[in-house]
C-alpha cells in the first residue's frame, strides 16, 4: 500500500491558496477586497508555520497580523476609501 503524502498535498494546496490570495492583493481593483484577501494570505501563512512546527509563531501570526495589522489596515481603508463614481448603488460617498 502506497503511503499517501498528506503533508505534501496540504503544502501544495495551502501554497496555492497563499500565492493566489497574494496575487489577488496586488491585482484587485478595490482596496477593501485587497485587505480581505490579505487576511486570507496571512492566515494561510500561519498554516505553513504550523506545518513547520512553529506553533507559537502561528498563534502570534494570527494574533498580531490578522488581529492587529489587518484591523489597522481595515480602519485606514474605511477612513480614506473613495467610492468610484460609476458605483450606482446610491449610498453616501465615504
Amino acid at each position: 500500500m502506497v503511503a499517501i503524502p498528506y503533508e505534501a498535498i496540504a503544502f501544495g494546496l495551502f501554497a496555492l491558496l497563499t500565492v493566489a490570495s497574494s496575487l489577488g492583493v496586488v491585482l484587485v481593483e478595490d482596496v477593501w477586497h485587497a485587505s480581505l484577501l490579505l487576511g486570507v494570505a496571512l492566515l494561510s501563512v500561519a498554516i505553513h508555520y504550523v506545518m513547520l512546527r512553529a506553533e507559537f509563531l502561528a498563534a502570534m501570526q494570527v494574533l498580531v497580523y490578522v488581529g492587529g495589522v489587518l484591523v489597522l489596515i481595515t480602519f485606514a481603508v474605511m477612513l480614506v476609501r473613495q467610492v468610484p463614481d460609476d458605483d450606482s448603488s446610491g449610498r453616501e460617498v465615504a
Binding site: V28, D30, H33, D87, S89
Partner: peptide, 10 residues
C-alpha cells in the same frame, strides 16, 4: 451593496 472584486489588469 456588496460588489464582486474586479481585477486591475492594466
Amino acid at each position: 451593496m456588496p460588489t464582486r472584486p474586479h481585477l486591475n489588469l492594466g
